[in-house]
Amino acid sequence: MSEPLLKVRDLRKYFPIDSPIPFKKSNQSVKAVDGVSFDVMPGETLGVVGESGCGKSTMARLVNQLISPSSGTVEFRGENLIGMDAKKLRETRKSIQMVFQDPYASLDPRKTVGELIAEPLVIHRIGDKASQKKRVLELLEIVGLSHYHAKRYPYEFSGGQRQRINIARALVLNPDIIICDEPVSALDVSVQAQVINLLKELQREYNLTYIFISHDLNVVRYMCDRIAVMYLGKIVEMGTYKEIYENPKHPYTKALLSAIPKESPHDNKERIILKDAIPNPIHPPTGCHFHERCPFMMDICSTKIPQLLDTGNGHIASCHLLKEH
């Protein structure tokens, strides 16, 4: 087996909370990401799912070093990004690009599309004006836009087209890995399908690796090779998409899957309706963070934090109901 492209070990990010008393330091914090470890192999797509507030996006930003973690390591091609000197980090970051959720907010309205796509080249001082222009036109074609679009401004484009521009921006430096943070959530279904097809084509063509964050479980199932399910800053289950969808182990994953809307009016789905919403991350429940909402709660769940167990087939889950394989 080849070496993983990205190795994340015990990554944590605690955001401190301001004390209600001015000038007094508070020792409370939100554990947005709390000990996450995973590998990403070259050419694969790792999906990250979970409810809002579970730490998916924070994790993405940590991997890319847009925010620095409280502890843990992120190794890209064997080199730890954390604590790397700024110059080297900048160089390495060329290979790790990101596509954000909101195509309306992520493009500077005062720049033309050509300037937007060329921006990474300008920042990293790659090539001269002519070669940059050539590269921009090349990318417009790759993402399914036309050459004349380079002179236009973002407001002239629809949501789907803007997301294509964002993808072009991410691709311009020939990255190895693209982190997609809910890239299609803001789009209509038919446009969503176009963007997903584009992402899949690009992956095949350029052997890209994706970390694909989404709350739409159908999209994740279609896009991803492996899936990590997050709950309150922790990965509670991870495995191949087949294992997760056909043989979910964690009660939370089961509930998430059962909440997917019906496929047809004839469906009669058994639903596990979860109580309440995700608990307050400042005071997470003791023991297993999920126990208050879990339909299979046992005594041990409220006192002991379950560890991730290997249940075979590269499938791991953290639940007291499970036994080591």
Binding site: V189, S190, V191, A193, Q194, I196, K200, V219, R221, E263
Partner: peptide, 18 residues
């Protein structure tokens, strides 16, 4: 509209209809 929905019946590597 119906075909561009991703549902469980869409197979892995088939392209989505748009």
């Amino acid at each position: 509209l119906l075909d561009s929905q991703i549902t469980e019946s869409v197979e892995d590597h088939e392209m989505l209809t748009t």
